[in-house]
Design a protein around this nucleic acid. Structure first.
Lengths: 345, 345
DNA sequence: CCACGTCGCTAAAACGTTTTCGGAAAGTAG
DNA sequence: CTACTTTCCGAAAACGTTTTAGCGACGTGG
């Protein structure tokens, strides 16, 4: 009896369990159990099924599995900023934490457009994602998607404004503290802080951490105040020129972003200051292309975004299992030492 | 008769067509036809079904639809470099071209690891993606995935090494030509080309376009030869110092990447050259953070990666419909004018 | 020889849709 | 009143898998 009589090969389409079963001479049920390592299957039979599956290059239809299991093995990742630098590492960490075996990531880029976001949300829910990770483009709180989506949601990088939701974010306060701590350990005493847009909560958090640590060391911010403006190189340059007038004894600058730090470095070099011998500079973000290309390469605070993504994925996995959490969890930043800081001999 | 007797609400799970049908007092078949705009449904009935669906906030299960339609409405995007700058715009363009309604994007980051790539590939095929977009981290050809995957594949940015496959890439030769053309139009005559890693095909393509255009204008490369080394700011600085010795009359530099261009700008400024008055500089990539932060902001060649993603998606859609293409299609780059180039008054 | 387990396997239901086919009701023509 | 069309609707199959329930066969202890 030819196999084809029982389960003819459907040209162009992937093989089904039915064909595997036919080739092995068993029922579909037995084939399923054999391949999934269930018991109640003889070991000889299991072998035959396995061989048949290999021969046909069988791979189970995840859609069909999803139908019966009532879960798609899929999570949605809703981002507001796909080209941005921040969503990517998070995405990567998340993709990592779910092995590609059990979970796949369905990507949706909302582009900060609310109606586009609603469309994407509908599409993802229609695909019956088991959960959702929402990653913002800015570290500030964003509006909650609501509790009644039917699937668990974890917010990463940008927390939800609803404390009932679960959010994982970088600890900006601790990051600012870490930066200043490093500068103090390097023996610096006249430390300025040049940072970005004052409408960002993150600016203030980083500044708060920085000032706290300065105060503990009995120091004040050099220049008299934290300097806010924009996250740009140009501002880094401008602020530094001001600073050099106001504080001739300046020996360190904590920049609120790597872009600002680049500007600070440029202005210092232009003014004839040696970095790090005379003035140390530390940035924030660890944006590789900026930090490694500068003269000298930039010491900076790494917000550990991949880790954030990993944690978000773990929290989401827990929530899918039924153990939902809530509240905002802040994770520590990491100091990355390059050549723009060094001990004051 | 209560609706619940016919189709009780399953707590925690999304509503099904069965429940919608029950609420509207029709059969499942009729409900399906009504919602999908099929004929053979009375308009009053259609209304009732629609209302019921709205009331229940019904959204059809895409997995089930996929089962019967034999397509998942999903494409896989296999990238080698998720944090990299190049895959993202492509991804975005692709996401754009398929509306989120009909197609969703399943993301997989292979991280240049062959075995990881195989895993992801299996996972994607198991999810029965309707097609695959493969986007590389480098513009050079990459090994083909083969023809026997059962789904159409389009390679973007990095072409497949098998001409039987379909690839869409940026036209580096035309890009190099475009850069030099712009410099010549600005009245520059002594034009150097500092570029990156000589093992990249893209370096040579860009250089070829540049030299062709120079030759047409009766010019030779300033400094005597195209300068290859690495895609770094440091190399841009080093090369420029060399160049200033060899070619005192230098009035333009075409940098093979924006990173290199940043180095070139720094070195020129340090040497007291004014940009663009004395020396014009043009980069390649249009990497925003680098190009807009520099002093002065950088004129550069934009490889139009979003467009590449869009085209890749269109080609893939055609292939899914059965109209498969093959070969390498190169798409033009775009000149983005900022302040580092200007006519020689 | 009987009662009872255990083992290996299969038939069938279920998941949520779409589509095909047939049937009922109502209208129209003869 | 019959024959035929048209209009609207429902029953059932199909997609590919997992799981439940049940059925023989076989061994074992009495």
């Amino acid at each position: 009896m030819s196999v084809d009589e029982v389960a003819p090969h459907r040209r162009g389409r992937p093989p089904t369990l039915r064909e595997v079963a036919a080739m092995a001479g068993v029922s579909i049920a037995t084939a399923s159990k054999a391949l999934n390592g269930r018991q109640h299957v003889g070991s000889a039979t299991r072998q035959r099924v396995q061989s048949a599956a290999d021969a046909l290059n069988f791979s189970p239809n995840a859609l069909a599995q999803g139908m019966v299991a009532q879960r798609s093995g899929t999570v949605g990742l809703l981002t507001s900023d796909l080209v941005g630098r921040f969503s990517m590492p998070v995405l990567r960490g998340a993709e990592d934490a779910f092995g590609s075996e059990k979970m796949s990531v369905l990507l949706a880029d909302a582009r900060d457009d609310h109606i586009r976001q609603q469309h994407h949300l509908r599409a993802l829910l229609s695909r019956r994602v088991d959960g959702l990770i929402v990653v913002g483009a800015q570290p500030d709180p964003r509006p909650s998607l609501g509790q009644d989506l039917g699937v668990p949601v974890v917010y990463a990088y940008a927390p939800s404004d609803d404390p009932q939701d679960m959010s994982v974010v970088a600890d900006d306060v601790a990051g600012g503290r870490l930066a200043v701590d490093h500068l103090i350990r390097c023996g610096r005493r006249t430390i300025a802080h040049v940072t970005g847009d004052p409408t960002y909560g993150a600016s203030h958090d980083r500044a708060r951490g920085a000032v706290e640590r300065l105060t503990e060391a009995g120091l004040a911010v050099a220049g008299g105040e934290v300097m806010y403006d924009s996250w740009s190189e140009a501002w880094g340059r401008g602020a530094t020129r001001l600073l050099l007038e106001r504080e001739p004894g300046l020996d360190a600058v904590f920049a609120g972003s790597d872009q600002i730090a680049r500007g600070v470095l440029d202005a210092l070099l232009e003014a004839g200051k040696r970095v790090p011998e005379e003035v140390a500079v530390i940035g924030f973000d660890n944006w590789e292309v900026l930090a490694t290309g500068s003269r000298p390469p930039l010491t900076t605070i790494d917000p550990a975004l991949e880790n954030l993504g990993r944690v978000a994925a773990l929290r989401l996995a827990s929530a899918i299992e039924g153990r939902a959490g809530h509240g905002v969890e802040a994770y520590p930043c990491r100091l990355v030492t390059r050549s723009s800081t060094a001990p004051l001999h």
